[in-house]
Structures are given as structure tokens and as C-alpha cells.
Simulated assay, not measured.
Amino acid sequence: MTVKIAFVYIAEPYQCYHAASVASALSALPDCSVTEYYSFSDSAEHLRHIRTLFGGNDSLSIRPFQKSVFTKILHIGRRLDREKSHVFRENIEELNNYDAIISTENTAAFLKQQGLKKPKLILIKHGAGDRKVRNEYMVKYFDFVLFPGPKIRNYFLKEGFTTEEKSTSIGYPKFDIFNAIKAEEFSIFPKNKPIVLYNPHYKKSQTSYYKWKNFIIESFENQNYYDLVISPHVKMFHEGYFVNEFLLKRRNSENVYIDTGSINSVNMTYTSNSSIYVGDVSSQVYEFIIEPRPCVFLNPHKIKWQGNPYFKHWEFGEVVENRNDIMPAIRRAKEQHYLYLDAQKEMIRKTFGTMPLLGASQRAATAIIDYLNQINMA
């Protein structure tokens, strides 16, 4: 009997890079039918690209979610959080035809409130960072959860949001995708200088973006040793009707490159090609230190972070609380990296475990099928 599985990408295209390789692995299995549903039109291009990278299985169907006029207006108006629940509600009848629904976002738990009956709801937990997420309690509504490794799984077990039987660790599928695309040429600057990646988060109470972004741009414009890539979290631009992106992109210069949401901003291109990471609370730092390198963290809000498990990653480099210390910290980051090297290596082990960094997509596919077979036999 054929198992029917739907993947749902309810947010921006970055979600594709956390789960689409798993969809490809499942679609290659016998008696397994997979369909991917997306909400953002840009996601279709990303999904097709990933499908091609993993063998181009034509049986893997890619479809947009059906949307009412009202829901389309919410999308145009960038009322994106409100839009999600409407999209799920308007597609619940079709989704109920599947044996399993797989998401990489906690809010897919809303499906159970909106009439999801037959399918098992499965979460591929995206991100590997330490930041506390407001809706993390929603994980308890999933029937099965796949974690990137022991650190995050143990946290959710301790909080009582999942159980040993309802969860497993499979690694980080995004690494498989990057491994498939890393041969593509990366060249955005005319000169061969060290690249600094500035990767601010969107969370207003913790981000450095609004207070220090302009100062950082001006500081790099006034020096000639580094090139700077600014790649904020894509949710930074939920508001503003594209005005914020337009104004920010006008700051591009010879040694400052600003990306507000291209494919390179979500597929590990910048984290893999940069020499120094500068950020605040984004989990992308864990993608950066897979190859341990210098980091600098910005704390304009003067958060009391020492000993706080939600800021564990700030032990990977110097933490700056005064904007005038940013460039000096960046200049000494390489020579002082030895102070933070052991912390980076230890957290990679705790975060992703001892399993190989590659192969998470296949491990996830196997875990999902084994779980569904076990349920059917019960």
C-alpha cells in the first residue's frame, strides 16, 4: 500500500532548506508518494532546485497552497502570521487525504485545531541555536519529532514537550543540501579580502540591527581590509512593504554587499564563505562553526547573558556592548580565536551528536517510514 506524505512550507523559502532534501529521499522509496505544498511563490524555485540536486525525481509533486482572496490580501499586506492559520484552514480538507503531514515550523500544530484527523503530524525541527522561542510549547502537539541532535532533543524532553517514543535525532538535513551546492562559484567582491558576515536576527528585543546597522556599514566603508556581507534573518522584512529592503540595498558599495533574501541568504553560502561571523541570536552561527572560525557577538541591549542557556552561543567569541568596540573586536577575532575554539567544538558535538554531518536527509526518511510502519502495525 502506498504511503501518502505531504510536506508543508508555510513561511519563507528558508524552510525549504531544512526539509526538502528529506522529501526527495522519501520520494525515492518504493510505495511512497510525496507532495510539497508552499505558501510563498518564491519557494517553488527553491524546491525545484533542491529536487534537481537530489536526483530530479519527477514523482515528487510541488504545489501551491490554495488561497482565498482574503488570504491573498493578508499576504500582500504582510500580515504573515495571521495568514498562516487561514492557509491551513483553507487547505485542511485536502491535507486530510494524506497519511502524514511534515512541517519544519511549530505553528503547523494549528492543523489539529482546524480539523486534521487522519494524518500523523510530524515535525522536522529547524534551527540548531539556543534562543528561547515563544511557541516552542506547540511541539507537544506533534505525533513525531525529528531533532538535529541531543542538545535540543534533551531540552524538549526535559520540558515535557515530547517523549523518547515520539522523537529521535537525525542530524541537520540542511548540511546535505549545502554539500550538494557548494561547488557553485561564489564571487561578489572584486578583491580577495577576508569576508565578514553580519547576520542579525529579527527579534527586536535582542537584535543589534536597529541600533548598530548604520554604524557597522559606515565602519566598513571607512576601512579597506575586510569585505562585509550583511544578511539579516529573512523575517526582518515582514513589515514595511519592501521599503526597508529598498533603503537597505541602497547602501551597497565596493566592499559592502547587502542581501535581503536571495537564495544565497538561506542556503549556507555566506556562512561557508566568510572568515568572521558577526551576529546576535541567530542559530545560523551553528552553521558557521561547523568549520570552527572566529565570531563576534553584539549586545547593544546589554542583556545579562552569562550563565543563561539561551545565550550559550555567545561563548563562541567576544561579546561587544559598546559600538565603538565592534571593529577592534573584529580585528582581533582571528588571533584570539584559540580562546573560543574548544567551546565551539564542544557545542558542535552537543548540538549534532556523534553521527556524521552528512546523511541526515536519509536518516530522517528512514525514521519517518519506520514510525509510520510501526503505527500501522499497532
Rank of each mutant, 00 (worst) to 15 (best):
Q362R: 12
W305G: 04
E346F: 02
I195D: 03
C32L: 06
K118I: 15
L116A: 10
K117W: 01
R250Y: 08
Y286W: 03
I258C: 10
N252A: 02
E287N: 13
M355G: 00
A23S: 03
W314L: 07
V234R: 08
G279H: 09
P194K: 11
V243G: 08
D130F: 01
R250S: 14
T351N: 05
F147E: 02
D325C: 06
N264K: 14
L95F: 02
S253E: 12
N264D: 15
F311I: 09
S265M: 01
Y98W: 08
F144N: 02
E105G: 07
T207A: 07
I152C: 02
R331K: 15
T104G: 04
A28V: 00
S219V: 06
D370C: 11
Q66G: 12
Y37D: 13
S103Y: 11
P150R: 01
L157K: 08
L358F: 04
Q374M: 13
H46I: 12
N264Q: 12
A28L: 00
F178L: 02
E45K: 11
K193S: 15
G115A: 05
A28W: 00
S283G: 15
N373S: 14
D176P: 11
L95K: 03
G127F: 03
N222P: 10
S43T: 13
Y38S: 11
T52M: 03
G56T: 01
W314F: 05
P194D: 13
K140I: 09
I276F: 07
K193C: 14
G261K: 08
S262E: 03
S274L: 09
R131T: 15
I76K: 14
P194L: 07
R78V: 11
S265T: 05
I170F: 01
F65M: 02
V3N: 04
M138T: 00
D81S: 08
N273L: 00
H238A: 13
E159I: 13
S219Q: 10
L358T: 01
T163V: 06
S59I: 09
A44P: 00
P13Y: 04
Y226Q: 07
K203R: 05
I369K: 11
R323Y: 12
G160H: 04
G77L: 14
H313E: 13
D342S: 15
R251A: 14
N224V: 12
N252M: 06
S24C: 15
R332M: 12
E105V: 08
V69I: 11
Y210H: 05
G149E: 00
Y202S: 08
K211R: 13
T168H: 00
V196Y: 03
E94I: 14
I76R: 12
S68A: 05
N373H: 12
K249V: 05
H75Y: 10
G160A: 04
R48N: 10
S208N: 09
H233N: 08
I124Q: 05
S265P: 02
Y257D: 02
N57L: 10
V22E: 03
V285N: 06
K166S: 14
S283C: 07
S61A: 14
E221H: 09
P356A: 07
V281S: 04
D227Q: 11
S167E: 12
K120N: 10
N192C: 10
T366M: 04
A28E: 06
K112A: 07
